[in-house]
Design a protein around this nucleic acid. Structure first.
Lengths: 247, 247
DNA sequence: CGTCCCCTTGAATGAAGTCAATACGCGTGG
DNA sequence: CCACGCGTATTGACTTCATTCAAGGGGACG
């Protein structure tokens, strides 16, 4: 019963037994549980640790002065928040739990020790950090270029691939613990329009969605409509320490 | 005559003479010059080095299969591309020069040496990396929540603050070597709409723009309209090695 | 059993896109 | 030297995508 993070890293990196046990001890320290809809970090606070998500969903968000809110990204099991946040005095955004959440908080020192002791783990954490940045870039593209229908299709594809990586899908289905209002805040669309777009995706037999279970009925077609290209997720990198990324 | 990068870092970090000379030697190696509108890195290519911008503007962009293009971010003098790109097999986006460009390419080894030899420089580069991520998040907010007028106002504020940090503004003015079409690709708006929004900003006496010179006539008012909060740029962090970010 | 949140749908409105035409500066080649 | 083409900026008219407003239904929970 390896956790989502180990599962994920093992798909892309050749972890030695030692790496795995280093990870395991790290993941056993300072475990915290939060209730759904509780904030983990709030804008303006000082970040204290590198945070890892073990179970549950969370999101980063920012609120404008007039109350508008944008969800900036979703944090899924096996995701890390910013590495080396310690260079930052105050957080520029908040992180909130969507579902009940299990996280691990890694101190600066423990993190340094880990990446210092294993080149593979160091690469692995860098890689995750890059993937986060790449996802954020793709969200920029999504909001800037795609219309509502495409945007939603793209988000569904992204979530599917990311959850698949940690074994959290069943066939073409996954739990989507997010309200339509929140989807709107993530995609820059009104709740009403989210509803209509979902309806259309259902009518076109691309997805089925009920009771928070999203089922993808035709992934290739969905990807086509979304102009989805999974390259940016950098899946299955399969690199170990010392290896050049070539082969 | 210190370069933009040193200027910028010196504002936020207490650089020793040794740090400065380390930076200088690094910035003197492998200098490359590119013509305007030339690509630096193309989607699908293998990233070879950490790139630093010394002079000129560039942008990251992604192209969808049907030709739509989104500019993901602007790279200004003193900016650094992704650190530790070496964990990535192929780039998920392109980087293109806007103006003629002077850059430095830092090899994996040289970079490791530098951050290994100075804790302050290590912090400084992490900090830049975080700021990049924060800017990308803010673009997500910008595209998701603000309307065209606000979006443009926000972009102008951001560029002003970022250029100001490296001493590239004159009073409230700066060179803006970007066409209206490109602004549209950055803000997810049509060229025509960009034109109208700029016109309105001029009518409201918030900006003046001619011949690629942007002048901000009323920064407080512009910021108010843009709902611009500069926190995310993490300006003036003023940290040195060993210091906790507290004080 | 009422309240609240979430989902759903229709109708009216509005922000931004598309299409189209004009203008301007610049370089190039006849 | 001037004509032409090209990229950029500008503006008007029309269309479309998405928002807002409004109302109703269903489930969870006190």
């Amino acid at each position: 019963m390896t956790g989502p993070l180990t599962t994920r890293l093992a798909r892309s990196f050749r972890l030695t037994e030692q790496d795995r046990s280093r990870l395991d001890t790290l993941l056993a320290q300072r475990v915290r549980r939060l209730a759904g809809r509780e904030d983990l970090i709030r804008e303006g606070e000082r970040p204290q640790a590198v945070t890892l998500v073990l179970e549950g969903w969370a999101y980063r968000y920012k609120t404008l002065e007039d109350g508008r809110r944008q969800i900036i990204s979703f944090l899924l099991p096996g995701d890390v928040c910013d590495l080396n946040v310690f260079t930052i005095r105050e957080s520029d955004h908040s992180i909130g739990a969507i579902t009940p959440l299990t996280i691990v908080e890694i101190t600066s020192g423990a993190f340094e020790d880990m990446v210092g002791s294993s080149g593979t783990l160091r690469s692995a954490f860098w890689w995750m950090s890059h993937v986060n940045a790449a996802i954020q870039r793709e969200w920029t593209v999504n909001l800037g270029q795609r219309d509502g229908y495409e945007r939603m299709a793209h988000l569904i594809c992204e979530l599917f691939y990311r959850l698949e990586e940690t074994g959290l899908t069943e066939g073409g289905s996954f739990e989507l613990p997010v309200t339509q209002n929140e989807m709107g805040e993530a995609l820059g669309l009104s709740t009403v329009h989210i509803n209509r777009v979902l309806k259309e995706l259902r009518l076109n037999r691309l997805i089925a969605l009920k009771e928070r279970t999203m089922s993808i009925l035709d992934l290739p077609a969905l990807q086509r409509k979304a102009l989805f290209n999974p390259t940016y997720l950098h899946l299955g990198a399969r690199l170990a320490v010392g290896e050049t990324p070539a082969e």
